[in-house]
Design a protein around this nucleic acid. Sequence first.
DNA 1: ACCCAGGGTCGTC
DNA 2: GACGACCCTGGG
Length: 288
Amino acid sequence: MTEQKYILKNQESFELKHIFECGQCFRWNENEDGSYTGVIKQGVIRVEKKENEIIFEGILDGEIQEIIEQYFDLKRNYDKIKMQLSNIDKYLKNSIEYGEGIRILNQDLWETIISFIISANNNIPRIKGIIERLSRKYGRKVVWRQKEYYIFPTSEELKDASIDDFRSLGLGFRDKRVYETTRMILEKKVDLEKLHTETDTIKVREKLLILSGVGPKVADCILLFSTLKRFDVFPVDVWVRRVMNELYIKNEDETKVSKNEIMKLAKEKFGDLEGIAQQYLFYWKREA
DNA sequence: ACCCAGGGTCGTC
DNA sequence: GACGACCCTGGG
């Protein structure tokens, strides 16, 4: 691991708050000076935005520029995407203005799978706490600037953890799901390497659904927020149901709006960019 | 004190 | 296909 620094200049569509508070990640925390520090597979990174500069520094396995470009999806043209989506209607235009600096991260697939299994019927502070404790107990320790950080444990590092071990970390009823999914991945019942080479989103989704604790919503989050990076999915949770009903469906009782109806509408309206449209709408509804 | 909801999934009917 | 159960925690 080496300490490294990288500066990005004149980068459009990059706001720390928008990126880290739109619900896609759980291991980035704001510092007192407004910068953020996060733990990813390759190490620890601190990000700061100063005028037209974005400064990355940290201790990493691998070359920092390469890691940043991949993780923050820097090769993708978000201006073009936002333009296309803004033309669809005023609601989308408005929510994009609100979260104009969002980028959809390329997070480690294994970590994203376990994190979103933990997210089921849970709230964000608690999800973050569970993931932190899990990493502290089983993950690799990294010390940077006199502070300790813990990398998210690999499947190998969770090999000997029991259901009760997970329960004692506060996972609740998700203990069995994390345990079983870890086994299935270790045994390559679902081969994560192969998922990356499969082109058909429907097929990748089917494979993810085999995993314990992975239903339609969690599968879609994994497809969108991990290195699988599919935008032709539309995770429907309570917030998305709320915002879609409020803007388009206008049912008196939002709980009566079916998930299929929402997903069908999203595909019609947003097409193959529905995943990223979901993030702008989600962020706007939760923050505004 | 009490209730409710939170980026849902699973088992059962 | 619908329906309730499920750990736990923070907020009203």
